[in-house]
């Protein structure tokens, strides 16, 4: 797929501290892209450069094939990690103001605002000041002002930190709906498990360097170890273990289940899953059989250790 955003060899230094070391990324149109890495890895630096808040020391960024320039802010919606709103400004006025700063007309902004206020059922907040709203309510407004100008590219920095679970879910659903409608979404987070299920593509950043990037499925395939979790109510567990030990690499493992069965993690090497199943079936009732898919967290730790 054609990338909507292309980051080419971006370098950013603050004094003698390097924040981004020759980062290149391609973010496919219509994807949910996870920019993952621990705190201080350089994610926010990169996002600020994409938002033209700061500028790279070298390297280029292309949006829709065009070199990033001020008129592009209209096409980007950004929810920073450090977020807030004018406390003493009314909700409606504030949303219109922020949308107009993005370059859309007041009438268009009003139309969009009405749509979102109806959708999130917050129409009667228009004349309230932010300081009169609860934190959860303010979070909804925060989301609305991010998407109000119908940007092609949405960037969320640590989107679910600070959101209560109910709002986080509402917003997750809204984001997925925006994706359905064709928006491209970038998530940046250090809590990798929180966005894993939503991402199509990811890039791992660590200590200002990109460790790996690509489609989530491909990366997981690459890092799969052909290991299966097996749960079995064996008549003679020790006999089974001895049998398996001779043929496969096994380890005791843990997963949630209702019975008190034998739980093993079995590395198949070159053998197939069916072969293992055939091998264990005579020993008892199989309750659990699934491939162990590496989590992003596992992959991250593995990559960092390998480097």
């Amino acid at each position: 797929m054609k990338p909507i955003l292309q980051v080419n060899n971006v370098v950013k230094k603050y004094g003698d501290k390097t924040a981004l070391n020759n980062i290149s990324l391609a973010i496919p149109q219509g994807s949910v892209f996870g920019l993952l890495g621990p705190n201080g890895a350089g994610k926010t630096s990169l996002i600020r450069i994409i938002n033209q808040i700061t500028f790279p020391d070298s390297g280029t960024i292309l949006l829709d094939g065009e070199k990033l320039s001020p008129h592009h802010v209209k096409h980007i919606g950004y929810m920073p990690e450090e977020r807030g709103l004018y406390k003493s400004m009314k909700v409606g006025e504030q949303a219109l103001y922020l949308a107009q700063l993005k370059g859309i007309s007041k009438d268009e902004a009003k139309k969009q605002l009405k749509y979102w206020f109806d959708k999130l059922e917050i129409g009667d907040w228009w004349n309230k000041k932010i300081q009169e709203l609860s934190k959860g309510m303010a979070q909804k407004i925060q989301f609305v002002v991010t998407v109000l100008h119908q940007p092609k590219l949405l960037i969320f920095d640590e989107p679910f930190s600070g959101f209560d679970p109910v709002n986080a879910n509402i917003i997750k659903d809204e984001i997925l709906e925006l994706k359905q409608k064709g928006s491209t979404i970038i998530f940046s987070t250090h809590r990798m498990e929180s966005v894993e299920e939503m991402c199509d593509e990811i890039a791992l950043i660590h200590k200002s360097n990109k460790l790996l990037d690509g489609s989530l499925v491909d990366i997981k395939k690459e890092y799969r170890s052909n290991t299966f979790d097996l749960g079995i109510n064996a008549m003679n567990p020790n006999q089974l273990k001895d049998f398996l030990n001779a043929k496969y690499q096994i380890e005791d493992t843990f997963f949630k289940s209702l019975d008190n069965e034998l739980k093993l993690s079995v590395k198949l090497e070159e053998r197939s899953a069916n072969e293992l199943l055939n091998d264990v079936l005579p020993f008892g009732q199989v309750t659990h059989f699934s491939e162990k898919i590496p989590s992003i967290n596992d992959i991250f730790i593995q990559t960092v250790t390998n480097n």
């Binding site: 001020p70 920073p80 709103l85 700063l101 993005k102």
Partner: peptide, 13 residues
């Protein structure tokens, strides 16, 4: 302090 600044300057200089 209200943390709105980053939102504003992602739109304007």
């Amino acid at each position: 302090t209200s943390r709105i600044i980053e939102i504003i300057i992602s739109s304007i200089k």
